[in-house]
């Protein structure tokens, strides 16, 4: 199939010779390195107000928590109110593994299976523009947690909420760890409008998204 690669690239080059001028190798590299942003949508509210407004519009819910104990309480309350049995799958992040759980609750840090109903994760960042949360895959944050269980609870540190998607990219680059296998930008529960254009929640991913805003 190397022929295909060669043929396609040759046709592209021939086609572009007809155009004004292609950029040099250095110019293309420099264009990438600049990471120039497009027009940035503006809004009046402060970052947090905008974030919460958009979270609500995305049909996700949220509550504020201050301590580990409050995270525990909020999760248990949420599970009880949705009649979820005493089993929780939890991401293995540093914060979440330090949380003390009551004995009646079985908590496992692992990837999700189709039997898991509820999951607790920790978000990498929040995006105020759209009310999205950003999940980066890794050993402490398996992707299946974000999609398999019906109920998705995520802790998000308020200081990780940024204005726009581009701010997340900047943050990722600053960390210098390269791209994770998957970055999931999640905005509310899973949905579909494939039956008569009527929006139904819980298509294949979580039916409900609940955010715990950690101050």
């Amino acid at each position: 199939m190397n022929d295909a690669r060669q043929n396609i690239l040759e046709r592209i080059r021939k086609a572009n010779q007809l155009m004004p001028q292609a950029d040099s190798f250095e110019a293309v590299r420099a264009r990438i390195a600049r990471h120039a942003r497009g027009p940035q949508p503006q809004w009046q509210q402060d970052t947090m107000t905008r974030f919460l407004q958009k979270v609500e519009l995305s049909a996700a819910s949220y509550e504020r928590v201050k301590t580990h104990k409050e995270i525990t309480d909020a999760v248990i309350r949420y599970m009880e109110s949705h009649s979820l049995n005493g089993k929780l799958v939890c991401a293995g992040t540093e914060l979440l593994s330090r949380i003390q759980w009551p004995e009646k609750l079985s908590v496992e840090a692992r990837a999700a299976t189709t039997d898991d109903k509820v999951v607790l994760t920790e978000a990498f960042a929040g995006i105020a523009e759209t009310g999205s949360i950003v999940m980066c895959s890794g050993k402490e944050s398996p992707v299946s947690l974000n999609f398999l269980p019906d109920f998705f609870i995520s802790v998000i540190h308020l200081n990780t909420v940024v204005d726009r998607m581009e701010d997340v990219w900047e943050k990722l680059r600053e960390q210098g760890a390269g791209m994770p296998r998957a970055i999931n930008v999640i905005t509310g529960p899973s949905r579909t409008a494939d039956v008569e254009q009527i929006i139904q929640m819980g298509a294949h991913g979580p039916r409900q998204v609940h955010l715990l805003l950690l101050e």
Binding site: T130, S132, S137, K139, R181, R191
Partner: peptide, 20 residues
């Protein structure tokens, strides 16, 4: 404004990943 899921896939699972 944005769909429920926007995902950026880069390569196969990393060595320590639990899934992918």
């Amino acid at each position: 404004e944005i769909t429920a899921y926007t995902t950026f896939f880069t390569g196969p699972r990393r060595e320590a990943d639990l899934d992918g």
